[in-house]
Design a protein around this nucleic acid. Structure first.
Ligand SMILES: [Mn+2]
Ligand SMILES: [Mn+2]
Ligand SMILES: [Zn+2]
Ligand SMILES: [Zn+2]
Lengths: 139, 139
DNA sequence: GGCTAACTGAGCCACTGTCTCAGTTGCAAC
DNA sequence: GTTGCAACTGAGACAGTGGCTCAGTTAGCC
C-alpha cells in the first residue's frame, strides 16, 4: 500500500470524503521529496485550486499526516510524516530533513513543567546544522 | 540605566548610528509588554516608517537584543531578550511568556549530533501550555 | 437515481515582510 | 562649527503565504 493510499484510508476512517482533488494532492505530495512548500504543491497540481491546497494541508495536519516545519529563516515547509511524535533535524546546506525523537527531550519538558508550574500542551523543536555528506563535501 | 539606554550603548559600541527612529522604537518596545507583534510596534510609533520598524527589528535580532518567538499558531512575536541563550515557555490562554534555559536540553542536542553525524549550528525550542494562574482560574 | 452535506474553485482580501530610490542625518574629520 | 558622506529613513510598490466568501459541484448514503 502506498503512502497516498494509506492516507486515503485515514481520511475515510475519520469520515472525510475521498474527493478527486484530495487524491490528486496526496499523489503529488508523495512525489515532492522529503519536504515541500505549499507553493510547490500548488504548482505541481495545477488543476486543483489554491484554496483547496491550503485547506487540504491544514486538514492533513489535523490528522497528523502532514507536519509543518519551521525552517531556519522562518519559512514554512510541509512534510508527509510518520504519525508518531517527532522532531526535525535539517541540513542548512542541502536541506535534507531527518526525523528524530528523544525520550531525554521529553524529560526536559517534564522538568520545565515541574519547575514552572505550567501544564505543557505542546512544543516545537527544530535543530539546524550540516549533514555528514555536506561536511565531507566542503570539509 | 533603562533597557532602552543599554541597547543604545550596544548599538553605538557595534558601530551603528543612534538615530531618532531607532531611539523612538526602543522606547516604544520597552513599553509594549513582554512580547509584541511587528504591527504593535508600527502602531505605537506612527512617526516611524513601517520599513524602518522591520529593518530595526532585524538589526536588533542580529545584535541578540530582540528575539523572535514562533507562537503556537505559527504567528511571530518579538521580545526584548536577555542576551543569554534561552527558550520560551508560553501560556496559550493569557499569552504570558517566560524565558528558560536548560543544560539538559543542550545535552540532548549534543546527543542528537553524535547519533546523526550532523554538526549542529542552531536550534529552536518553544513550549506551549497553561500557566499556574490560568490553571487556577478555570480549574 | 436522488438528496444533501461536504467539498471545491475563483477571486479577493489580510498580514507580514522586502525592495527601491530619492531624500535626510549622524558623526567623524577638519 | 562646518562640511562630507556613508548610513539611514520613508513612501509606496511588491511578494509570499494563507484565509474568506459564495455560487456551483460531488461523494456517498438512501
Ligand atoms: Mn517532543
Ligand atoms: Mn538551546
Ligand atoms: Zn546536507
Ligand atoms: Zn496564562
Amino acid at each position: 500500500m502506498t503512502t497516498a493510499e494509506a492516507i486515503e484510508q485515514t481520511l475515510a476512517r475519520r469520515g472525510y470524503r475521498l474527493t478527486g482533488p484530495r487524491r490528486a494532492l496526496l499523489e503529488v505530495m508523495s512525489g515532492l521529496g522529503d519536504h515541500f512548500a505549499a507553493d510547490d504543491v500548488v504548482n505541481a497540481a495545477p488543476a486543483v485550486g489554491r484554496a483547496t491546497v491550503f485547506r487540504t494541508l491544514k486538514l492533513l495536519q489535523d490528522l497528523d499526516v502532514v507536519c509543518q516545519v519551521v525552517l531556519e529563516d522562518g519559512a514554512t515547509a510541509y512534510r508527509l510524516a510518520p504519525d508518531e511524535h517527532h522532531h526535525h533535524l535539517l541540513c542548512v546546506e542541502c536541506s535534507e530533513m531527518r526525523d528524530f525523537s528523544s525520550d531525554d527531550l521529553e524529560a526536559v519538558i517534564a522538568e520545565v513543567a515541574r519547575r514552572t508550574g505550567f501544564t505543557v500542551e505542546a512544543h516545537r523543536f527544530e535543530v539546524y546544522g550540516r549533514c555528514p555528506a555536506c561536511q565531507a563535501r566542503t570539509s
